[in-house]
Amino acid sequence: MMNVKVIAFDADDTLWVNEPYFRRTEEKFCTLFSEFLSPHDIERELLKIEIGNLGLYGYGIKGFMLSMIETALKVTDGRMNADAIEKILNLGKELLNEPIELLEGVEQVLQSLQGRYKLVVATKGDLLDQERKLKKSNLTQYFHHIEVMSEKDDASYQKLVKHLDIQPQELLMVGNSLKSDILPVLNIGGYAIHVPYHITWVHEMVESQVEHENFKSVTHIQDILQYLPL
């Protein structure tokens, strides 16, 4: 990684807690309609509808709210009343107002790297929501650029590399998702370090093992420093 000039960090579940909040909201949602279907079956239906809607709504809480409403309509066979809709909207608003809890070691790592590398955030989700979370995190000072992508694929990372005016081999991506943070960057010739999080959304899971000369996997985010000239 001697050639690395830019280090990009995923945001959700790499810099701060995210997926546990979604899981908790899902549980509350499934409980709301448990008289119609078992929580497990509701959760499965929600996931199917949510993934089916990604092309329309993209990633983020607002799309998740709409998918919950659509799921409730299907589960109740269209008999959902206005009170139920209000409860779903309130669940979404609660999710939007969850506190930003930085993961252990994140700020120390950014402090160690600042000034030595150009640091950026490369994340998916709703632009307004991700900007809000970044502001509440008090990490903005460390980053040269914020990139909120509609999808994290090869083309999106190629676009990022071009925008930053670097070569792919000068980019290191750090994130918790093999599917979104690691594989596309390796595909374009960059470096990637996987920092697993204990909860992963099903849509982000991959079954295959990653074997690549530009790939590393660590237990904690502080461990990335051992691979970087400081």
Results as ranks from 00 to 15, higher is better:
7 I>L: 11
9 F>N: 03
9 F>I: 08
12 D>R: 07
12 D>F: 04
13 D>A: 09
18 N>G: 00
19 E>Q: 05
19 E>W: 11
20 P>W: 02
21 Y>T: 09
23 R>A: 03
23 R>Y: 00
24 R>T: 11
24 R>K: 15
29 F>C: 06
29 F>K: 07
30 C>R: 06
30 C>W: 02
33 F>S: 00
34 S>D: 11
34 S>F: 04
34 S>W: 01
38 S>W: 00
41 D>W: 00
42 I>L: 03
44 R>L: 11
44 R>E: 10
45 E>S: 11
45 E>H: 04
46 L>V: 02
48 K>R: 15
49 I>Q: 10
50 E>N: 04
52 G>F: 12
52 G>L: 07
54 L>Y: 03
57 Y>M: 04
57 Y>F: 15
59 Y>W: 08
60 G>D: 06
63 G>P: 00
65 M>I: 15
68 M>N: 07
68 M>A: 09
68 M>Y: 11
70 E>M: 15
76 T>M: 07
76 T>A: 06
78 G>D: 14
78 G>W: 14
81 N>Q: 02
85 I>S: 02
85 I>W: 02
86 E>W: 04
86 E>F: 08
88 I>P: 01
91 L>R: 06
96 L>I: 04
100 I>D: 11
100 I>L: 05
103 L>R: 12
105 G>D: 13
106 V>T: 14
107 E>S: 00
108 Q>W: 03
109 V>T: 13
112 S>K: 14
118 K>E: 13
120 V>N: 07
123 T>K: 05
123 T>R: 02
125 G>K: 09
128 L>D: 06
136 K>T: 04
137 S>M: 12
137 S>W: 11
138 N>S: 10
139 L>Y: 05
140 T>I: 14
141 Q>V: 13
142 Y>L: 04
143 F>H: 03
143 F>I: 10
144 H>D: 14
146 I>W: 09
150 S>R: 15
150 S>D: 11
151 E>H: 07
153 D>C: 04
156 S>G: 13
160 L>H: 00
161 V>Q: 04
161 V>G: 07
164 L>F: 06
164 L>C: 13
164 L>H: 10
169 Q>R: 09
170 E>Y: 01
172 L>E: 03
172 L>R: 05
175 G>F: 08
180 S>G: 02
181 D>K: 11
181 D>R: 10
182 I>T: 03
183 L>A: 08
183 L>N: 03
184 P>D: 10
184 P>I: 06
185 V>M: 07
187 N>V: 00
188 I>L: 14
189 G>M: 03
190 G>A: 06
196 P>W: 09
199 I>K: 10
200 T>M: 15
201 W>T: 02
202 V>F: 12
202 V>E: 15
203 H>K: 12
217 S>A: 13
218 V>D: 07
219 T>A: 13
220 H>R: 14
223 D>G: 09
224 I>W: 08
228 L>Q: 05
229 P>S: 12
